[in-house]
Design a protein around this nucleic acid. Sequence first.
RNA 1: GGGAGCGUAGCUCAAUUGGCAGAGCAAUGGACUCUUAAUCCAUAGGUUGUGGGUUCGAUUCCCUCCGCUCUCACCA
Length: 504
Amino acid sequence: MSDETESAKEHELYSQRLEKAGRWRLLGANPFGNGFRPADLAGDIARKHASDGAEQLEASRPGYSVAGRVVALRSFGKAAFLKLRDRSGELQIHVKKDVLGGRRDRNKITDMGDFVGVKGTLFRSKTGELTLAATEYLPLTKALRAPPEKWHGLADVEMRYRQRYLDLVSNPEVKEVFLRRTALVRYLREFLDTRGYVEVETPMMHSLVSGAAARPFTTHHNALDISLFLRIAPELYLKRLVVGGIERVYEINRNFRNEGISTRHNPEFTMLEWYRAYATYEDMMAETEEMISGAAERVTGSLKISYQGQVIDFAPPWPRLPMAQAVRQAFPSLTEADLKDADRLRAEIGPKLPESERRHLDALGPGAMLAVLFEHGVEPRLVQPTFVTEFPTEISPLARRNDQRPEIADRFELFIVGREIANGFSELNDPLDQKGRFEAQVEAKRRGAVETMDYDEDYIRALEHGMPPTGGEGLGVDRLAMLLTDAPSIRDVILFPLLKPEKR
RNA sequence: GGGAGCGUAGCUCAAUUGGCAGAGCAAUGGACUCUUAAUCCAUAGGUUGUGGGUUCGAUUCCCUCCGCUCUCACCA
């Protein structure tokens, strides 16, 4: 540790452990050695013998070898109990001087956090705990830094995110959260795979901004000397694949959006997008109900979960709520005709918003204004799973127009605990209409809007070759993981959330 | 960027109206061959985030800056 910013105390603790590593070497053990191959797993042993009595074990004396991190250490000078943790769980180890003979000092130079390998026989201690009595005790890796406080664990929020490895060691429940997230992703893949969807990987570096309303990160390719954008969505590439005949296709991967960080936003986040030829947005809603309720059941064991004190019931079917209807319920003074009048809507919501937000309203048309009223008046109240339907076409540049009412799109969003979890629609496969929508986006960008899409000529060309009628959807995997793990912040379900670089 | 809060030993936290900066864990030395946050004795560990101000005296009150958390905005 050559860091100048370290305190004298840190240096002292580090030096002590480094010195002990040297003592390991004197005893013939490499403090960073390799080659010990445990035959068994601590947690498996504990489970296998959970109901075995002391006499039974005394008679059979089953032998095992395990390796793991020392997470508890109680020394008695000539004997010690320590607790070993490996990927399967924990097991207590008993080390005795008279058994280890000449190597007895090894337990004296073991610290919390070290990795050791142990061979021994199983017995029950006087207090009844299943314990492996060491016949061999081998230091494997010296931890040169001490773990966090053993009782309270690591509490500093920043340190937990920045040094996630310590968080995982110190707060065992954190590992459960991430295992559950992994189980969720595995379930999503399985769900789609069994329905004939093909998983693909499309570019993350785009030369155009497309597929969502967001500001991109910019990067640069040296050899080609071109600017590239980290993708904000894979949407247009996936639909090109539907054009190409991959009629059911999905991708689970990262999107990058250059925006603020909050408990619900990380600049890189995981999105599932899936597309299904010959499906409508209504089919997608049905599939979403099946997928998410199935995920809840698989991952939590129940269709009813508790999220931050609220009970969420995933049992389908979920209500379909047209946006205009929802807004009229929330703002009873508005008439049917008012909903098509941008100025009337502005007058309704404007005074309730802070100045910083109000000035963004001026350029918005009636569809976008309706969405603003929805976001403020309705969204936070949608606690139970709810599909909001009949989105204005104005804010849905990639979605198919409704046949009867061209001002609305065949689109829905799924809300749970006031958050958008998924967004799906019948895809716009009319290249002429799509052209016009892109042009409107370009025009908006020219007027100064920042979160608009570029005109994608190749995508238009693809549509001109013919895309079958298709339903598509995007689902925020992190946000769903939050719900299913009862996590208050998106940072709790992302192993390494974006942080400012550490000041040195 | 706005607002609120926080910053004390390696970790988790105390410190009365502004009056000598403390505890537990971890560490070091010692005792202890059945512990479960082991126990007991002893030791060491601090520029109270930074810089300034008020005061006889500041962890405490005021200001600057830095960092973090929450929140609003941006954004799904």
